[in-house]
Design a protein around this nucleic acid. Sequence first.
DNA 1: AATGAATGAGACTTCATTCAT
DNA 2: CATGAATGAAGTCTCATTCAT
Lengths: 222, 222, 222, 222
Amino acid sequence: MEQWIEELLKINDEDEKKTDKQMKIITAAIEIFAKKGYSASSTNEIAKKAGVAEGTIFRHYKTKKELLISIVAPMMTKLVAPFILRDVEKLLASSHHSYEHFLRELMSNRIQFIKKNTSIIKILLQEIPFQPDLQALFVKYVASNVYTKLYKIVEHFQSKGEIISVPPPSVVRFTVTTIMGHLLVRYFILPDLKWDDEKEIDHTIHFIMYGISNTPKEDESS
Amino acid sequence: MEQWIEELLKINDEDEKKTDKQMKIITAAIEIFAKKGYSASSTNEIAKKAGVAEGTIFRHYKTKKELLISIVAPMMTKLVAPFILRDVEKLLASSHHSYEHFLRELMSNRIQFIKKNTSIIKILLQEIPFQPDLQALFVKYVASNVYTKLYKIVEHFQSKGEIISVPPPSVVRFTVTTIMGHLLVRYFILPDLKWDDEKEIDHTIHFIMYGISNTPKEDESS
Amino acid sequence: MEQWIEELLKINDEDEKKTDKQMKIITAAIEIFAKKGYSASSTNEIAKKAGVAEGTIFRHYKTKKELLISIVAPMMTKLVAPFILRDVEKLLASSHHSYEHFLRELMSNRIQFIKKNTSIIKILLQEIPFQPDLQALFVKYVASNVYTKLYKIVEHFQSKGEIISVPPPSVVRFTVTTIMGHLLVRYFILPDLKWDDEKEIDHTIHFIMYGISNTPKEDESS
Amino acid sequence: MEQWIEELLKINDEDEKKTDKQMKIITAAIEIFAKKGYSASSTNEIAKKAGVAEGTIFRHYKTKKELLISIVAPMMTKLVAPFILRDVEKLLASSHHSYEHFLRELMSNRIQFIKKNTSIIKILLQEIPFQPDLQALFVKYVASNVYTKLYKIVEHFQSKGEIISVPPPSVVRFTVTTIMGHLLVRYFILPDLKWDDEKEIDHTIHFIMYGISNTPKEDESS
DNA sequence: AATGAATGAGACTTCATTCAT
DNA sequence: CATGAATGAAGTCTCATTCAT
């Protein structure tokens, strides 16, 4: 992976120091929240699976919701980590890569990430609709980072002639919905289908770039 | 809309006869389930909003879960209604439409459907991961209908030369994830963005067909 | 069976006129009360088994408890029927039977009765401790009839020299507890043992009369 | 009381350590179950009488039925404790007592026991017909212990010539039904009569041994 | 007379949270 | 720090009973 994209992951990973018990609680909570959903999980069950007393949970987290947030909030940042890096322009200027290449790297990188954090992301997806706290965080990171950064990247490759000149928001939205759509379907909606991931990524990127039509495009206006 | 596609919707919509109270219960339940999630909703709250006694709910639905299922299960069928029609081949043979056209009709049709049933679909999406009953239904309808039907449609348009000749499953998956992805993002993940739906559909379909690359495709292998 | 004992059963059996539905309700109630106990039986279940609407039960019986009483109270009288007949003295005077004979007839008569009414008697036994109404009836019939009548009978046979001259109450109590005990054990506590009823009755009566000791009794004081 | 019979009671009575609240719950439950029957008793009422929160009951007993069982099951063992001791033969061999004596000791011993545990035994009697769990325990302890042990005892005293030579099962059943019958009537069916217990026991045992007939028995066949 | 939908009190049970140890 | 017994509010569900049809 190229250096500039590697930077995408330089998000501080320090999970503050957690006691042993605290880690056990979090691990148990993740497992149970992911399996039954936040509301349907009981602190009692979490305590049992963690091998601690129920009271111990509340020594570390004032409420059950605080436990949820503490698990899920950091994920928020990491999910969009690749777009948080500061000097996109510099990076783009100093490199001569294609949008296709960028997407390919982005996708396989995020897939690695999802594989490592499936449970937490599942919890996140489940609870975002019901937790205003999380929604606020989501808007903060996604809206203000992902989209603005992507606009610039798209504009960059439009100016280099790689991407057709439709309004960048359209391209961004298509890119985002297509990739997110693929990942949602692949990892959360139909994870049990037999997927050939290598090919799947290849096809997805290729289709995003060139479509599935056999007819040459006359002019690429929308 | 062309006639053959209109047939897609001929799913009987008659919601058996429900008593007045039963309708009130269902309406209230939909609203509350959608807002707080199934587990976090209380039958007490539903009863209050429906203006009935709590016991009345349990006269019509043995358990809270049965209430959920009765709301959400029929949606399953209707969601994939366009793919349940029998003689796809005939329809395709007798018509001279393009895949692009088909997708466009399909999308705007499903969007109408989503708009009319946003809440229920939201509940469905939330609860599928936790309700094996629903998963079973989902597999039954999606797997056995949508995919097999789509394969045939894609093959048809490949034989007519409209679609590049990659394995149909790839095309189907790309189509499905892209459209589902768009709809999920548009209506459930970021419904509050300012969307210009007309254009959005146009772009999405166009991109699916022709991609976003400016460079003519050399060869359309995978 | 001798005529004087036959009179024991001349209790009016007329079950007032009951409608068809009413009979179905009673039959169902008996079955369910006997199986699960009064408190654990629901009017809903009774209605279902009876094939009537729940409301119909309450048209005939103001409350669930009234239904219970209406089933169980008449049994009270019939249980002790043999002792309700008026002129015991006459009967005894005019006949020259033995106490042993009397017991034998009594026992087999009551066994027939129990066999025909096992369920109702079971309900009665279960509910007497909790229903003051029933207790009152029980005391009324048992105390005022059975014991006083039996005293006279025992005295009669003592005066004829057949029974040892201990205070009649002792003999009565022994007779009653022994026979009731046998019947309770035989029909309600261990009904599933393999019983040879003929022999069982024989032995019981014989033991009551002559005991199980091998040594001749010197004197029969207590 | 002779030593060998004293052994009959060496069943460990230690009620594991129960917390203060737990004891209060059990005490309250016994009282209320005995008064109203299991089904008609509410956990709410039990909690109030015990002076604890309703939730506390369910911290100690997963369900209301578990509470019942925990009260009633141990009584099962203790009820038949005198028959659980192992080496009946040895005891009999080494002692030179009469069956009459044995019955007398047994009865007064069981009466003491009943007096101490009237409520629990009442609950037990009420609920056995409806609780398969309890039935299983009853069969296990009664069938396999009481009867087999009693057979041996009876045979022993038959061989010593004290008991008439009818088949032991007959003697055992008569003994059991007579004594159980007496105890049931005395303590559970008509506890409010004025009983002179000393005399009552005397008479009962005497009657069991020698019957109530004044005429000497010719031959003691059945 | 019969129905069965509706009721609301109350049943059993769960749960997040507290607090003395 | 950790525990786990205790809490009481709230949850799901049942029930005897009523009443308009």
